[in-house]
């Protein structure tokens, strides 16, 4: 045990905190942006018109079929070629995360909407409500209950995925820890820290989902 030097964590803390801040930023932006865009896609996919539903379906299918790391690369390397100027690593990573996660949020939201009985829509339409009102007042509030655990789950996945931004030379929490690990020759300490932090955050989120589920069942 004498060989361990846990002080390395305290010494490198400001640097690690920067990484954690980037991870948090990615999670917040891709969750907010992904849910908004995902909601739009979900509503498009529900449309009766093929020219509205079709593009959304293609988009979601493609995004769900490629690895996130590829999407990160595309935006970092291809978009500058197309628009003729560099975009910057952070901007391209944020955009890539939002566009990628939107496809998953779309499917979660769609499943939530579909979980509401068709009779609810009929009953609301029969009172003279318009489709948009039915969606906002009747379907969404009920669908949201069904989709909340899945949305939380997706947040956990996004948080774990943020470590992929190292491919566009950004430093998230995982990357900063790995930099310190090789710089100071302390891989055991640093990777243990990473594991503990990921475990703590993801475990408490899962616990929150579980408690939410129990609260609903009551």
């Amino acid at each position: 045990m004498n060989d361990f030097d846990w002080g390395v964590i305290a010494r490198s803390w400001p640097f690690l905190a920067e990484g954690m801040a980037l991870s948090a930023l990615l999670v917040v932006v891709s969750t907010a942006g992904g849910i908004l865009l995902g909601l739009g896609l979900a509503l498009m996919r529900r449309s009766d018109h093929a020219f509205i539903a079709g593009p959304a379906t293609v988009y979601v299918t493609v995004m769900r079929s490629v690895p996130l790391i590829l999407v990160l690369f595309w935006f970092y390397f291809l978009v500058p070629l197309v628009i003729g100027r560099p975009v910057g690593a952070l901007a391209s990573a944020l955009v890539a995360f939002v566009l990628f996660e939107a496809a998953f949020y779309c499917e979660i939201i769609r499943a939530g909407i579909n979980s509401v009985r068709a009779g609810q829509t009929e009953a609301a339409l029969a009172t003279g409500m318009r489709r948009s009102q039915v969606m906002r007042l009747i379907i969404m509030p009920q669908g949201l209950r069904a989709m909340t655990p899945l949305l939380f789950n997706q947040v956990i996945i996004v948080f774990q995925d943020t470590s992929l931004v190292y491919v566009v030379a950004l430093r998230d929490f995982m990357t900063t820890a790995s930099v310190v690990a090789s710089r100071d020759g302390r891989p055991t300490e640093m990777y243990t820290l990473v594991a503990v932090v990921y475990l703590a955050i993801c475990f408490s989120l899962s616990k929150a989902i579980e408690l939410y589920g129990k609260g609903r069942a009551r």
């Binding site: 009985r117 009779g119 609810q120 009953a123 029969a126 003279g128 009747i138 009920q142």
Partner: peptide
């Protein structure tokens, strides 16, 4: 038009 016609369903369909 629907607003002027009340409807009651087999499975109630209360919100």
């Amino acid at each position: 038009l629907r607003a002027q016609i009340g409807m009651v369903f087999q499975n109630f369909e209360l919100y």
